[in-house]
Amino acid sequence: MPTRICLLALIGLPASGKTMFSKWLLELPQTAFNVIHICYDDHFPQPTNETSSETKFEFKKERTQIFSIISELIDALKNTTRFPNHLNTTVKSSLHADCYDFLIICDDNNYYRSMRYKLYQLCKQTECAYAQIYFEGHLEMALQRNSERPAVERVAQKTIQQMAKRLEAPDSATQRWESNTVILNEYTYKDCSAMKIKILEFLGKTFKNTLRPSPVQEKAKNVQSLVHQLDLLLRRRVAEILHTEHAHTLERQERARNLNTKRKDILQNFKTIAEEGMRVDELNEYANLLH
């Protein structure tokens, strides 16, 4: 069976029930799919009231890193159907031995639409499914729940208030890509079990809605693949040339630098031409340009 992956973006204020929902899904005795929980709080420092440029840079850096983790996870599942042990995730395997459906929970506030859209675009590029669950609730409720947390887990009250002002709720009317969304209000998510059938049916159907790259994205993907294949051929060519030439260490190092400079130039020129149309069987012609 082919591997199917769904990215599930959770949306909501701190203390709105996102991680509680994730744990509930992980603890279900049996599901029709494997569950992988990525809790952003495990990768990000606790939010503060600071708004310095340095703090914003670190936040952006952390978000880029976790996006890379998700990309790496998708790649590993697509190619090996195995969970990379070095990634900081919680995994619940399906009791079905031959289950190749994987739900990746992106447990974050995702309060800006741009944050979610980046995940949606990743799904299109990697041919995965995409879904959202919006934990709708009042600011007062979030502040109350946050105050009941252990001190080390509490988010600054000012941070939650600012996030509430900036939160961009899903809007499928104007953003069609957000149409695959379920809204859980402050009453329903208190007892996830009451909505078990609805939630599992929603997630189960989502796996059937695999996204596809647009023609532009597909072309870029093909070009990237060709460039990668040519790079491997060129690197092999460099190794062959250095192996056949007998030179002193310093001369060999200089020769290697020159060859790698040529390799990069060939790749750059090839990329420009490949965007206009290129066949795999033409790669060797470019590899032989290196001498």
Rank of each mutant, 00 (worst) to 15 (best):
R145S: 01
R145V: 01
R145Y: 07
N146H: 04
N146S: 10
S147E: 11
S147Y: 12
S147M: 11
E148R: 13
A151T: 14
A151V: 10
V152R: 12
E153Y: 15
E153H: 14
R154L: 10
R154S: 08
V155A: 02
A156R: 03
K158Q: 09
K158S: 08
T159A: 06
M163C: 03
A164C: 08
R166N: 11
L167G: 00
E168G: 02
A169Y: 05
A169M: 09
P170G: 00
D171L: 11
S172E: 04
S172V: 00
T174A: 05
W177F: 01
N180H: 03
T181C: 15
T181A: 02
L184G: 02
N185W: 08
E186F: 01
Y187G: 08
Y187P: 00
T188Y: 02
Y189F: 14
K190P: 02
C192H: 14
C192W: 08
A194Q: 05
A194L: 12
K196L: 07
K196S: 07
I199R: 07
E201I: 12
E201V: 06
E201S: 06
E201Y: 06
L203N: 02
G204F: 11
G204I: 09
K205R: 15
T210F: 04
T210K: 13
T210C: 12
P213A: 06
P213S: 13
S214E: 12
S214W: 12
